[in-house]
């Protein structure tokens, strides 16, 4: 039950993963163990398939999302501590938020802003890859995860405003 998520899907424990292989293996496993396969089975097997299928869903959702995946890797290596974001990033956050409020009405500016923030996202993402897979610098990675989390939320806000 508490099997390592990476082992479960036959993947090596890295931030950079083969998402196609993840999806393919997820589907193969669900095809075997999903409760629909045990609809006329014994109570035992119904319960077990429900437990495993739930676990596999949870594992898949965790590895599919870059942020959750990064957090999961960190949880395997260090105990969770409260981290604080550097003050200059907090300033940056406020500036971005303000900028979004100012350009709410302009489609062009919103599209430009989306482009810029997408680039920020890419950069953070690459940084995280280095920090986790190469440097194994868990403390720095924890800060980058928080930044990425903020940027992802901001990007969603921009997309919703655009629509």
């Amino acid at each position: 039950m508490t099997q390592n998520y990476f082992e479960l899907f036959n993947l090596s424990e890295k931030f950079e993963i083969d998402s196609e292989k993840l999806q393919e293996n997820y589907r193969s496993i669900q095809k075997e163990i999903h409760p629909d396969r045990f609809a006329t089975s014994t109570e035992n097997e119904k319960i077990q398939s429900m437990i495993k299928s739930t676990h596999v869903n949870d594992a898949y959702q965790t590895l599919k999302s870059p942020i959750k995946r990064a957090k999961y890797i960190l949880s395997l290596h260090k105990s969770v501590e409260k981290i604080t974001l550097p003050p200059n990033f907090l300033m940056q956050q406020m500036e971005w938020e303000e900028h979004l409020e100012n350009i709410e009405q302009s489609k062009n500016e919103l599209a430009e802003f989306k482009e810029a923030i997408s680039k920020e996202y890419e950069q953070c993402f690459l940084l995280l890859k280095t920090q986790i897979d190469i440097e194994k610098n868990w403390n720095e990675a924890a800060i980058t995860i928080d930044k990425l989390h903020f940027i992802e939320k901001l990007l969603n806000k921009i997309k919703i405003t655009l629509n």
Partner: peptide, 24 residues
């Protein structure tokens, strides 16, 4: 019998997972 074979069912489910991936 249902409760006696509960661990058996769990092990069989794990084997199914293994099989799903080896088959691949």
């Amino acid at each position: 019998l249902n409760s006696q074979s509960e661990p058996f069912a769990a092990k069989r489910m794990d084997r199914s997972i293994q099989k799903a991936l080896t088959g691949k």
